[in-house]
Nucleic acid binder design. Structure first.
Lengths: 150, 150
DNA sequence: TTTTTCATGCTACTGAGTTGCAAATACGCA
DNA sequence: TGCGTATTTGCAACTCAGTAGCATGAAAAA
């Protein structure tokens, strides 16, 4: 069966090109992989997905993922298992903007372990900090059951 | 200079005793260390603090910290550096209760790196999840500057 | 095409956290 | 108080995510 990310290679290429940086096979493949994924992907998920058609060294996967984050195309999420997971940024609300505005929300399913972005739902957050503390950013992690596992 | 945790050994001993489990030197020392710490401590922080007067093997530190979490005396926080940090639970609102009630908030200072618990401030959080998703717990991570570094 | 610059792949490393097992220790009980 | 047993500790060796250095290879510029 054909891996779904293959359908996103063209979009990925366009995305990389838009950055003005070098267009390379690993960058295209990794970005396509994130574009195709509906949930947050670890470096291992990516490496495994690409193994058959676009095998990429694991170190390169790490570097490309970090590069995508620096370019604002993706953002990283710290999981409970000490593994970074990566998600594509929605075109119209890149994480940078979001983060400066205040908060960013994710959902982790306790059953299947998948992590999703809650970009569309604007959470109402109000935190009263101790005197002298200043907020620059709020991250929200919601745990529970996703629609599929509920 | 005398390390501050020494003043908490008695309290720590009482805390361990209250669990009904075995009273051991490492357990007392590690718990005292958490009691004395105003911010979240990593296993390395603990091991380092205890090095002079109550040297404990690093594996034992890991095990004791996990044990404290299981006993409801402490809770663990995932940091941005893939390191677990541990905090004592406030007596009157143990994390378990808190977590079942909905949410738990932490503050990380971008300047000094310290992480604090925001147990006293009850954040107002309202999240609208996609259809079919169910929430069991919400964790809030606030980033910014603490009073000392502001 | 040639040159230059940057990315990749490989190997080796770091550092957090875990596992298995023998030795030590807390605690119940005589 | 001393003994026996169950539990903990300490040690060594391991796993696994992520990183660093460096030579090779590929993309873009000339």
């Amino acid at each position: 069966m054909k891996p779904p990310y293959l359908d996103y290679l063209v979009d990925a290429e366009a995305g990389i090109r838009a950055t003005g940086e070098r267009l390379t096979q690993p960058r295209i493949a990794v970005l396509a992989c994130l574009l195709a994924s509906g949930s947050a992907a670890s470096h291992l998920d990516v490496a495994h997905t690409l193994a058959d058609h676009h095998a990429v060294d694991r170190v390169t996967v790490y570097r490309v993922l970090e590069w995508l984050v620096n370019k604002g195309l993706a953002h990283r999420i710290a999981g409970d298992d000490r593994v970074w997971r990566f998600m594509i940024n929605a075109q119209h609300s890149p994480a940078q903007t979001d983060r400066q505005h205040g908060h960013h929300a994710h959902f982790t399913c306790e059953a299947c372990g998948q992590t999703f972005c809650l970009e569309k739902v604007t959470p109402q957050v109000e935190v009263k900090l101790p005197k002298g503390f200043r907020t620059s950013e709020i991250d929200l992690m919601v745990r529970g059951r996703c629609a599929h596992c509920a």
